[in-house]
Computed example of a mutant assay.
Amino acid sequence: MKKSFIFTYFLLLLLTVSTALIASSGTISKGFVFLIMGISAIKFLLVAFQFMELKKANSFWKVSLILTLGLLIILIVCLK
């Protein structure tokens, strides 16, 4: 169990650094916004399922969280 926490932590660090590199690359187009939001969604789901132990929750909460996150990302990307 501890190894999975450490692996998740380093994966989150790697995704954060990659997001920072993408954001500092210059002009931000709609594709870059979609990529950054996708990486952010992955990070959010990693934290929710691994550290908040959502993986042990009822299926309703899992599905509602994923659908809400997807709707939020679609709204942000479309409004950019």
Rank of each mutant, 00 (worst) to 15 (best):
A41M: 12
E53T: 11
M37L: 15
E53R: 15
L11E: 02
G26R: 04
G70T: 04
K30C: 08
C78A: 13
K62V: 10
A57T: 12
L11Y: 00
F51Y: 00
I39A: 12
G38V: 03
I22D: 01
K2F: 14
Q50K: 13
G70I: 03
M1R: 11
G70F: 04
F5T: 08
F32E: 14
L69R: 00
L65H: 02
T27V: 14
V33T: 10
S59Q: 11
G38Y: 01
A57W: 00
E53N: 15
M52K: 04
L69C: 05
L14W: 03
A23P: 00
Q50M: 15
M1F: 09
F10G: 03
E53G: 10
L45G: 03
K2A: 14
F5M: 14
I39M: 15
F34S: 11
L13P: 02
Q50V: 15
K80S: 11
L65V: 07
M52D: 10
A20N: 04
K3Q: 12
F7E: 15
K2V: 13
G70M: 05
K62L: 10
L69A: 09
I42D: 02
I74H: 06
L46K: 03
I39K: 13
S59H: 11
G26L: 00
L46S: 01
L35M: 10
A57Q: 09
L67K: 03
L65F: 06
V77H: 00
V47K: 02
L54G: 04
K2D: 13
F49I: 02
